[in-house]
């Protein structure tokens, strides 16, 4: 099953549960206009599905209004860069609501948006770092990269009281969904997933680099290197302890981050490791070249042989 099909099935399962779900967004529920996402959704009679206007800033404010007044809203957004128009609402409205003495307890609001990381959107593709949106106001956010984190995140967070953003990957959309099996452990309500445990090295992947990290982990194993694999799904409120604790044992770390921003989540972890006794450190980041503003493939490639040599 394709990534997008699996996510859509999860969404369809969840949206029929609340009494007053309000699902909205441009062209939602209208077939394949969102690449198949939201196709065939249904809600209970007390809810609504709204094929909305083209006004992202106001639609984000609308979602906060629903939440304030006890409803459960989900804004499905075709591309996360459209959310730039809603930054005022993401920062100011969310902060105003959070700072009140009496905060709404029942309502919820979730933005489900697809990060433009295929590369072929040209200038829009530079903004592929999901954490950038979360960072502006320390917004809870969850990047969905595979079957295990998708199942967990959609069932736990789509209608949870309060606000969050769930980020999907355009690049992964039409690929087969990766099934990593049962995670070793899930930390912080889905902020970090651990997929393997090993004594030789600790591998940590960020943003939407899970597929590359998983492949690297398999290559490491074949080379006789048993590694932990953590995937960091959220950029904020991340308790690094589980990773730091493992690195203190393995003394070797590999970080993988496919984000294009200047400030990336991997740097936060690396800063936490400053002064810690580490024998080997391999950092795999994007190499920004002169083509980064143009429509080109955005596939993030890792020289696995080189990494194996460096970490041995």
């Amino acid at each position: 099953m394709k990534y997008i099909e699996h996510l859509n099935n999860l969404i369809k399962t969840e949206v029929v549960k609340p009494e007053h779900a309000v699902l909205f967004g441009q062209n939602i529920n209208a077939g394949s206009c969102l690449g198949g996402l939201t196709k065939g959704m249904a809600v209970k009679p007390g809810g609504r599905i709204i094929n909305s206007t083209n006004s992202e800033n106001s639609l984000v404010g609308f979602g906060f209004g629903l939440m304030l007044n006890g409803a459960q809203g989900v804004f499905f957004m075709k591309q996360m860069d459209f959310l730039l128009l809603g930054i005022d609402q993401l920062v100011n409205t969310y902060n105003i609501i959070r700072s009140a003495k009496h905060q709404p307890k029942e309502g919820s609001f979730t933005v489900v948006a697809t990060v433009v990381d295929s590369g072929y959107e040209g200038p829009q593709s530079s903004l592929n770092n999901f954490a950038d949106f979360c960072s502006v106001a320390r917004i809870p956010g969850f990047a969905v990269t595979n079957r295990a984190d998708a199942d967990y995140i959609f069932s736990k967070h789509l209608f949870r009281s309060g606000f969050r953003v769930i980020g999907l990957s355009q690049r992964l959309g039409k690929t087969e969904i990766i099934d990593p099996g049962e995670p070793v452990k899930v930390f912080g309500d889905g902020t970090i997933f651990q997929y393997s445990k090993g004594e030789d090295a600790t591998l940590v992947s960020f943003n939407f680099s899970f597929p590359q990290a998983q492949s690297l982990n398999e290559a490491l194993k074949k080379a006789g290197i048993n590694a932990d694999h953590f995937n960091v799904n959220s950029a904020v409120a991340t308790d690094w302890f589980p990773i730091l604790e493992r690195v203190s044992r393995t003394k070797k770390i590999i970080v993988v981050d496919d984000s294009k921003s200047v400030h990336i989540s991997a740097d936060s972890l690396l800063a936490e490791l400053t002064g810690k006794p580490i024998e080997k450190k391999v950092v795999i980041k994007r190499k920004i070249n002169e083509n980064w503003l143009y429509p080109v493939s955005d596939v993030f490639e890792i020289d696995e042989k080189k990494v194996i040599e460096e970490i041995k």
């Binding site: 609504r48 106001s58 404010g61 609308f62 629903l66 304030l68 007044n69 100011n92 609501i97």
Partner: peptide
């Protein structure tokens, strides 16, 4: 009074959402 905004025009769409929640309820 459930929301007051310090940002010009920010409160209009929030009010639409508040009114919509009342409508569906």
């Amino acid at each position: 009074i459930i929301y007051s905004s310090s940002i010009l025009g920010n409160n209009f769409p929030v009010a639409v959402g508040v009114a919509m929640a009342d409508k569906i309820s």
